[in-house]
């Protein structure tokens, strides 16, 4: 990579977050310990302990409503955006609790990026502006904007399709292209972890394959956590897998977690076996 790394803004007395050995832009490891979540006083997620390995792809699977998205959003402090949402437990990025004192949500979200189910580029911005939006928020100035745009779009597998139309509006792309633009936008701030909430569920098979390819390519630069309902996709892209389940009127829990081959090949729990084999009912 030729561009200079944008660095986290620091001011005098500014609490230095994530003082692990790695800096912004290198893949990080997330340890979630005892994570619980509530919506309006209703417990929806109970005591989740999960480690998301550095530079690996972790897939979260499970039936609808079992709290996968909730858990994912807790990992980058997006949960607290919802009114009435509460949580407990700790989430450590390279050993530093992102919910610890002095940690700011904005700062955390710059280190732990997120891609949503529905593509959501900023429609009033051009493609290039979309890619650079995150940097504008943190007021960091990349060495060379054009290089950074190209790099991020290349990593997201979109560069060849849009290199001649960087000045067009972000809303003018197809759904699959928009989703890759969102991935590029997240990558441009050089997060250490990228969270993806069903990134392909609104896309056609070709776009899905492109994005899966992208995930594999970026995995050595950024730790990826992906929620998916597609078992084949989980098998294709992930190194580790965690199975969430919520019994009726019960909060969601992690039933089983481990290497993907294990979860799909030789699960220890009957329910996991049923789910990954499509016998869930």
């Amino acid at each position: 990579m030729t561009t200079t790394l944008p660095t986290a803004p620091t001011g005098p007395g500014h609490p230095q977050p994530f003082t692990g050995t790695r800096t912004l832009g290198e893949p990080g490891q997330i340890d979630a310990e005892g994570v619980c979540a509530w919506f309006g006083g209703r417990l929806v997620l109970e005591t989740v302990n999960l480690t998301m390995e550095q530079s690996k792809v972790t897939a979260l699977i499970g039936p609808s409503g079992c709290g996968k998205s909730t858990f994912l959003r807790i990992l980058n402090r997006m949960h607290e955006v919802v009114p009435g949402a509460q949580l407990a437990g700790s989430v450590k990025l390279d050993g530093v609790d992102i919910y610890g004192p002095g940690q700011r949500a904005m700062e955390t979200r710059r280190h732990i990026g997120m891609v949503f189910q529905k593509p959501n580029p900023f429609p009033a911005m051009t493609i290039a502006e979309n890619v650079l939006a995150g940097l504008k928020f943190s007021r960091s100035t990349p060495g060379d904007k054009d290089d950074l745009v190209q790099e991020a779009l290349t990593k997201a597998g979109l560069w060849n399709e849009v290199k001649d139309r960087l000045g067009e509006l972000g809303g003018a792309l197809s759904g699959g292209q928009q989703q890759r633009l969102c991935i590029a936008r997240s990558l441009a701030v050089r997060p250490r972890v990228l969270l993806m909430d069903e990134p392909c569920s609104a896309l056609d098979p070709t776009s899905t394959l492109r994005i899966e390819q992208t995930i594999k390519e970026i995995a050595d630069e950024v730790t990826v956590v992906i929620v998916t309902h597609n078992m084949q996709q989980a098998q294709r892209v992930s190194d580790y897998c965690a199975f969430f389940l919520a019994a009726e009127n019960q909060p969601g829990r992690v039933i089983e977690a481990g290497r993907t081959e294990m979860i799909f090949g030789e699960p220890t729990d009957q329910r996991t076996f049923d789910y990954v084999n499509g016998q869930f009912g």
Partner: peptide, 9 residues
């Protein structure tokens, strides 16, 4: 949410 997730205040 996209803006917030990118680290916007």
């Amino acid at each position: 949410e996209a803006a917030l997730a990118l680290g916007a205040s």
